[in-house]
Design a protein around this nucleic acid. Structure first.
Lengths: 335, 335
DNA sequence: TTGAAAGCGCTACCAC
DNA sequence: GTGGTAGCGCTTTCAA
């Protein structure tokens, strides 16, 4: 069943059928109706390959993501997917892991599929040294990165002000009497580094101590973090509050503290469902995915349509206060 | 840069270039080498549309999923994606929500993209009455459903024995002295119903009470469930254990119980990270996605290659014991 | 082993 | 408003 069959059965030429297929401009209402009727009757579906050949577009955008099973990335993918679909674009999903080699390989694969654009989820896609693959991609199609900052032409960056969020956290804790804050992080992506910098600058600005042994790299899981914090406590390392770069890390710390019946202020990051699920519920920084993702997709659509856009959008975070720290109850600091 | 350019620069015909492109059978080693060299030099990438036109395949499979932001589905998508990619297949992701209308629409969309197969994630895709869209899809391409049972030709089903898992849960709780188990569920998909049936049959078999007011439908989130259970407790409804159809629901119940300083056995479902994140950590049924997904993809690959396969595979679940219920410590039941 | 040429199904330009 | 037709870039016979 192809355009010729439809043309024959409708008593028109394939040119006319094609016109109907593409919006029906310059076709008489009657003809259009007739052709549409035949199409429906025959259950006709235009061949996407042939169409792609002509238009050189398949109405698909590639999403690159290090790990969709991570709740944060999953939410981002979900949001981006639904926004894109609202614009009639399909999503080619590609999970790369953290190895640069694979990121490059999969980006190339996406480009080979002739996607109309590429969305990079997370600042894990901004490399410290080698971003040549992104540069190359951006020459071919629009590239947008969510929560990363890659300073290359054709790359649209939409991000959350992680650094400022962490500075604010530090400030708040300090103003509640905390002086030795334990900072836990997992991986120093661009975003991870911003957070760490925010913490450090905050400490400096507000006069908190921040010795090296209070800035700890931990695995991105509950048990690994728990063990790390547990051993910190056993070693007699003293701190009076915890800031984590991820909710899941905050929970690991929380559990280690609970073992020792310690109840310190804890602030997580991402405001994921984990923050709600924790007991006591975790105060956490909302990294604003709900805003970031639609914004990113809208910018992309505008860019594709040739409208002038700002290709650097920074959105402020928001602290969601729950049980582990509140700016109202000052009495929650126990040493 | 197309096949003609490569042919010209290599001093051969496009036919030869095409042969090289497709494995290089019936091409002299020398010619092949030459052509490959030119391709690399020019950074040539075959046009996927033209290729698709000829071969009528784009090496892509569609994944349909009600909601990737759900941690369970996200994990499934992640696993399926990586397995498919290992077989050289790309993934077209499509999130439908729970409305039948959208499921149908998006399934049709995937088919229009000429995917080579469709993977349905979760039994939410098995409808009670109308599965005509799946039937139709299965006529065109192989369809596999993960954790659902759709009895149609061409549909491969890989699922976990949810019913048995729930019977076992009931049995275990009963043998630990529980007699009035609260059963919390969110949505009665095929899987949801299996779980409920397992619970009911378990109660019958082991002599547990299971009045209607102990089988409660709740929203699939922590707060909604918490409120529901809270009001149950306020109404004086009595129960001595909780089984939930989802970890997140179990956590909602757990929080409501904690408010009243009640510590009853609780068993969640899915063994997600939420089970670990909960305090106390949740005993939960592992629904074996790590096995289900690779199995599903392997069956699909075999099926595509025309090998004979079993299109119904059922895998046993596994109870992962943590703090909220253990078969070893009998003393954890407080009424 | 290689080349010529006929599709694959559609879009878009040019006539009428 | 409609039809004829030349591509789009590839695969795949069929001959040589």
């Amino acid at each position: 069943m192809n355009i010729y069959d439809i043309a024959k059965r409708s008593g028109v030429s394939i040119a006319t059928v094609s016109r109907v297929l593409n919006g029906g401009k310059n076709v008489s209402a009657k003809t259009k109706e007739k052709v549409l009727a035949v199409m429906k009757e025959e259950g006709y579906t235009p061949n996407i390959f042939a169409r792609g050949l002509g238009l050189n577009s398949i109405k698909m955008v590639g999403i690159l993501c290090t790990d969709v099973s991570d709740i944060y990335y999953a939410k981002a993918v979900s949001l981006v997917e639904s926004c894109l679909r609202a614009h009639g674009l399909d999503v080619l999903l590609c999970c790369t892991g953290n190895q640069l080699e694979n990121k490059k390989k999969y980006l190339k694969l996406l480009l080979q599929k002739r996607v109309d654009a590429v969305v990079l989820i997370g600042s894990a896609f901004k490399e410290d040294t080698d971003n040549s693959h992104i540069e190359e991609a951006a020459k071919q199609v629009p590239v947008v990165i969510i929560n990363g900052l890659v300073d290359l032409p054709g790359v649209i960056c939409v991000l959350c002000d992680d650094k400022n969020a962490m500075m604010k956290n530090t400030s708040l804790l300090h103003s509640c009497g905390c002086e030795r804050i334990l900072y836990l992080y997992d991986i120093l992506t661009y975003s991870g580094r911003q957070k760490l910098n925010g913490f450090r600058e905050g400490c400096l600005a507000f006069g908190c101590e921040h010795p090296e042994n209070l800035t700890i790299k931990v695995p991105k899981n509950i048990e690994g973090t728990r063990e790390k914090v547990r051993s910190l406590l056993q070693d007699g390392v003293r701190f009076d509050a915890v800031i984590a770069s991820e909710d899941i890390i905050a929970i690991g710390a929380q559990k280690a503290l609970a073992e020792q019946n310690l109840s310190l202020p804890i602030i997580g990051f991402n405001n994921s469902v984990f923050a709600q699920s924790a007991t006591p519920a975790l105060t956490s920084v909302d990294s604003m995915l709900d805003t970031l993702c639609p914004t990113a997709v809208n910018l992309l659509m505008d860019f594709i349509q040739g409208k002038p856009i700002s290709n650097r959008v920074m959105i402020s975070s928001r602290l969601v206060e729950r049980d582990t720290f509140s700016t109202e109850t000052r009495g929650n600091v126990e040493k």
